[in-house]
Design a protein around this nucleic acid. Structure first.
Lengths: 334, 334
DNA sequence: TGCAAATATTCAAACGTTTACCTCTTAACC
DNA sequence: GGTTAAGAGGTAAACGTTTGAATATTTGCA
């Protein structure tokens, strides 16, 4: 097993000092053409690449960022991660992926882990609560971007989607469709998204003076959607779901009850994950720009890392109403 | 912005040498109880964590592994990545994720990138062809595990699923169900998976003496599934799809043609991605143990990294037949 | 009390770069 | 021809650890 070739090796073979080799690589203009070519040739021949760990030590940055998400297996996240990676790799950064399962203790461990790995920055989607471990980064001025979450406590950057408005837009549409009775089947109550969607729902209830509605909380899963239908005191004209997964479960249960969608009842989702356009019926939902969320977060983080005095910034992205087959066609103007 | 606290700082405050601090952390038994406590206290107070870049340089390993996959957005991969991460983090490794989009040039870049980042090992799922850049790792004895692919050229480890057998099992089942005419709607021809599934199909054709069959190649997508149906000279009794995504598209097209599943025709998938059990009809398919694939690969890589003379090894996982609503019930024994 | 052995601690080199500073050569100018 | 400036390359320190070797301290024992 041959040791990796180092700068010294190149230097020795070329008969120059290591610093010259370094310059050939980093500031070619500062070394004469003859030497440069000679050294370059040897570098090519030996297939030399600088040891980035040594570089990292010397320069104080490994060009690595940490990404903490609840679970890559949740269809909401892959596109976000992709957005982050596409942007950051172009800048020479690599991305360390961590799944926290929304567990506070696990999050703490991961944060410590990333800190000890000397990452240059972190993109973080946490559980609902504020994780004090965050401060090991903020207190040392290591940039941090929150995804899909805001903590007023910190003056960090964040990228969120206006869930309240998304839900409100959806409700406005449903009202226009002529639906009169509603149920909100939501995810876990303590969650940022569940809260915001609930808020948007309530806003619409008030604005459009909806009398006939019901709200139930569960989890953001297929199974939970299925179950939540059973908890309803009666089946309303339209079932507004906290996310697409819930909607799938709801659709299944509703059809099992012998009701047809959208003729008997309407069902809506939230997120517009990849399958929602292929589901049967295809799902009326609110699209979150996942790839954009990731990309924007990466961009923000990058600026905070590389620009001396870049100030933390919050970005609010707008969700988009996607109308498909699971709701009836619009019948009147409000 | 305060510099990070280093071992020297701790040492100075404690009035000991840096090496003592190092020992307190790494070999506590070699330092007297008094000093150990004193130093520990200061470490806690200052919230000190060793700089892993320096450790990495000194020890020659950053405890980082690279994972190259085509696209995290493809539902096949998240669970694999999760399996890898769960295993490796427990061992103190972190995982750098890279998406190659199956592009040969991109793969090369990523491999170089990972090499220059001094990863301890790589888990690689490539495009169909052999990527010579692989050799920058193998030639330097940096462990490599191939996922879902074998290259005979290299004596590396790999984890694959026996696709041939999976398809054969499925076909055996379909024959038992009494289906007499078949079509295979496959993914991109040059692909390992497409080839293997084709092979399994042919094996069954031969074994069960199937006369009435047709094969068409497309891509592993919903849209391609939809289109491939149109290319068929006639609709057979059962449509065997190269993966679940194709099956979804096929189902949609079939229903659009006014045929009902499974009464008029059967449809099967391959992979058993998360949605297939919720699809309507739920999909008869062949389950790939994705999480296991990831976990096994991580385990293998770990052993290759940490065990002095561990020999590369191939692991073949068995897929599992999953029978659901998209095919008719078994009606006879073969 | 003296000496060896065991234990505790420090020293200094090493890992592979980058870079500020120094030296040497060459060219330019009057 | 002598002075200066620019250009080219080398030297050595620094980044923050770990670790083998060296030294200092304590302990046990005769």
């Amino acid at each position: 097993m041959s040791r990796k070739v180092s700068m010294k090796d190149i230097a020795k073979i070329a008969g120059v000092s290591p610093s010259t080799v370094s310059r050939v690589i980093n500031k070619p203009s500062e070394v004469s053409e003859g030497l440069r070519k000679k050294v370059m040739k040897i570098i090519k021949e030996l297939n030399y690449t600088p040891n980035s760990v040594a570089q990292g030590l010397r320069k104080g940055s490994m060009k690595v960022i940490g990404v903490v998400i609840p679970d890559i297996t949740n269809p909401f996240f892959p596109a976000i991660v992709r957005g982050i990676e596409d942007f950051l790799r172009k800048k020479g950064y690599s991305l360390v992926l961590c799944n926290s399962d929304q567990d506070m203790e696990e999050e703490k461990k991961l944060l410590k882990f990333l800190y000890s790995k000397n990452v240059d920055g972190v993109i973080f989607t946490g559980s609902g609560e504020y994780n004090p471990e965050i401060e090991i980064f903020t207190s040392r001025n290591i940039p941090l971007v929150f995804l899909d979450r805001i903590y007023k406590k910190e003056s960090s950057s964040y990228v969120i989607v206006d869930n309240v408005d998304g839900m409100f837009k959806l409700m406005t549409y449903l009202v226009k469709c002529g639906y009169k009775s509603f149920a909100l089947l939501n995810g876990y109550k303590e969650t940022f998204s569940a809260k915001a969607r609930y808020e948007g729902f309530l806003k619409a209830v008030k604005k459009y003076n909806i009398k006939n509605y019901e709200v139930v909380f569960g989890r953001f899963t297929y199974e939970s959607g299925y179950e939540m239908v059973e908890k309803l005191s009666k089946i309303p004209e339209v079932l507004v779901c906290g996310n697409d997964l819930i909607a799938y479960g709801v659709i299944n249960k509703i059809e099992k009850l012998g009701l047809s969608i959208p003729d008997d009842v309407g069902v809506t989702g939230f997120d517009d994950i990849a399958f929602s356009k292929h589901y049967k019926p295809s799902l009326t939902t609110v699209r979150q720009p996942m790839y954009q969320i990731g990309k924007k977060a990466a961009e923000l983080l990058f600026k905070m890392i590389e620009l001396e005095k870049y100030k933390p910034k919050g970005i609010v992205l707008n969700p988009e109403l996607v109308i498909r087959e699971s709701t009836k066609k619009i019948e009147m103007e409000v």
